[in-house]
Design a protein around this nucleic acid. Structure first.
Lengths: 269, 269
DNA sequence: TTTAAAGTATTATAATGCAATACACAAAAT
DNA sequence: ATTTTGTGTATTGCATTATAATACTTTAAA
C-alpha cells in the first residue's frame, strides 16, 4: 500500500507484480457496492487504462470477474465464493464452532457469531441469525474494527497490554455511529474492563440499535485467534441485564472452543 | 483448463498468464482440506517448483496465503473472505433474499438456503440453519451439481428443454451417495416433473439422510439465476408429506424474489 | 451534428518474469 | 554416523512476456 513497501518488494526477485495488480483490480470492488466500468476500476485502484484493461480482461477470462456485455460493466465472479468455501472448510475452528454457535443461538435466542482476529479488525465467518437485521451484518466476510466491537475488545484483553495498546494506536479511530468511543484511553479502559470480566461489550458502537457481547477464543499458546459474540436489540435489553443473562453462555462457548484448540491435529496458526 | 483453451488465450494479447498461474495456486487449496506445503501445491496445480515458489511467495506477500513459519506450510489467507463479502454485498438478490429466507426458515422450521446458478452447479450463498448438520452443508460457497439437487432441477426446469439437456450432457454424472440418480434420462424425467410441479425434489442424492425441495428464482428476462431450497432429515419427513407441507412456501418465496428482480435499479445479469 | 468520453485493438520495446541451477536444510534410510 | 532423498530457498542470464503509448471504434452527451 505505502510507497516504501512497494519499493521493498521491487527488490524481491520472487515477487510477481502482475499478480499484485490483478488483486488491486479485485479489491476495487470493495470500494463500491455496485458494478464498475473499466474506467471506474482504473480510478479505484490507481492503474492506468492499459493495465486495467489487461487485468480486468484476464480476470474475466478466468471467471473471477463477470461482465455485462450490454452495459460493459464488471462485477466480481462466482469463483471468489469458492475460495471462501475452501478457506472455511479447512478451518478446524470453524468446524467446531458451527454446532456450538447454533446451540448458543438456541439457548439465548439472539444472533450468535464467530469472528476471526486479523490485526486491527475481526472478520465474521459464522453467523447464526435469529431476527431480521441490517443487511451487511448478516454477511460472511464483514470486517469490523477491534477497537469498537465487543469481540474485538475481548480479543485485545487477551493480548499483553502493550500489544493491545499498539493495536489501538495503529487503528483508524473513526466513529461508525454517534456512540462509538474513539478516545484511545477510554477504549483501553474498556479493554481492561473486558480483561477483568472475561468478556467485552459494545453498545451501539458499530451499528445503531445493536448491543453486543463477546468472548475471546485462544489457541494452545494462549493467543487470541477469534471471538464468539452475540448481538441483540437495545430495545430488548439493557446492558446490565444482557450481560447477566448471557455472558456466562458466551464465555462458556468461547472457552470450550479454546480448549479444543489443543487437540486439533492440523496446524494451529 | 483444457489444452485447446490454453492455446486460445495464448493468442490473446491482453491475457496476463501470470495472473492465471496465481489463481491456480489458490485453487489448489480446493483439492485438499488441510494446509499445503510448497511441493504439494506444485503437484496440485501442475506448475514447476520455480513457478510455484514465486506465486506462493507473491500471494503470501499480498496476504492471500498464510504461512506457518515453523512447518512451512501454506493455507489460504483471510483476504479471500473480503472478496466474498464484496460479492455478497453488491448483490441485490442476496440482499432481498436474506430476510425472506429467515422468514421461510421460521415458518417451516427447517434449514432454508439460497443458491446461485452457475453452469453445471449451484453455489450456496445464504444459509439459514436450524439444526445440526453435516459441516460442509453449513458453509457459504459450497457447490453442488445441478443434476442431483432439488434447486438445480428446479433451475433446469426453467430453461428451454434443449438447454437443460445440454447442461446435463456436460455434467459429470457421478454419484455422490448410493441414492444419487445418474442416468441421463431419469434425471431429465425428474426435471420435467419439476417443470410440471413448479419445484424440484431430491431425496438423499447429495447428502445421505437429507431430503431437499427447491424452487427457481428467475430474472426479469425469465432466465433462472438462483434457487430457494429447504432441507430436512428423512427421519422426520416422507417425501410426499414434505412437499405437501412446504412446497407452497418455498415456491412463494422464490416467486416473490423473482418478481422483485424487475424493480432492481442496478444491472441484473 | 459535433464533441467528448469510454471501451477496444495493435505494436515496438525492454523490462519483467522465467526456469535452470546451485545451495541449505531436514528427515529417513542405510 | 553417514548417505540419500526430498523440500525449501536463493541466484542469475536470457528471452519471453508484459508493458504503455497510441490509434481505432463505439457510445453518450452537448
Amino acid at each position: 500500500m505505502s510507497t516504501d513497501e512497494t519499493a521493498d518488494v521491487q527488490r524481491d526477485p520472487l515477487y510477481v507484480s502482475s499478480v499484485a495488480k490483478a488483486f488491486r483490480v479485485l479489491e476495487a470492488f470493495g470500494r463500491s457496492n455496485t458494478d464498475l466500468s473499466l474506467s471506474e476500476i482504473a480510478r479505484h485502484c490507481g492503474l492506468d487504462k492499459s493495465a486495467t484493461q489487461r487485468f480486468a480482461h484476464t480476470l474475466w477470462q478466468l471467471g473471477y470477474l463477470e461482465k455485462d456485455e450490454r452495459t460493459r460493466r464488471f462485477r466480481l465472479g462466482k469463483p471468489v465464493l469458492d475460495l471462501t468455501f475452501f478457506y472455511l472448510r479447512s478451518s478446524p475452528l470453524v468446524e467446531l464452532a458451527t454446532p456450538a454457535l447454533l446451540d448458543l443461538r438456541q439457548r439465548c435466542g439472539e444472533r450468535a457469531n464467530l469472528s476471526l482476529y486479523d490485526d486491527t479488525s475481526i472478520i465474521y465467518v459464522i453467523r447464526q441469525q435469529s431476527k431480521r437485521e441490517y443487511f451487511d451484518s448478516s454477511l460472511i466476510g464483514r470486517r469490523v474494527p477491534v477497537f469498537c466491537s465487543a469481540g474485538g475488545r475481548a480479543i485485545l484483553a487477551q493480548l499483553p497490554p502493550a500489544e493491545a495498546a499498539a493495536i489501538i494506536a495503529r487503528s483508524d479511530l473513526v466513529a461508525r455511529t454517534p456512540k462509538t468511543l474513539t478516545d484511545r484511553d477510554v477504549i483501553l479502559a474498556k479493554v481492561a474492563q473486558a480483561r477483568e470480566a472475561g468478556f467485552g461489550m459494545a453498545v451501539e458502537e458499530t451499528t445503531v440499535g445493536e448491543i453486543t457481547l463477546g468472548a475471546a477464543v485462544t489457541n494452545a499458546a494462549g493467543r487470541p485467534v477469534a471471538a464468539v459474540h452475540i448481538a441483540a436489540s437495545v430495545k430488548d435489553w439493557k446492558p446490565d441485564a444482557f450481560a447477566e443473562h448471557f455472558a456466562h453462555m458466551v464465555v462458556e462457548t468461547a472457552q470450550s472452543l479454546s480448549r479444543s484448540q489443543d487437540h486439533i491435529p492440523r496446524t494451529a496458526r
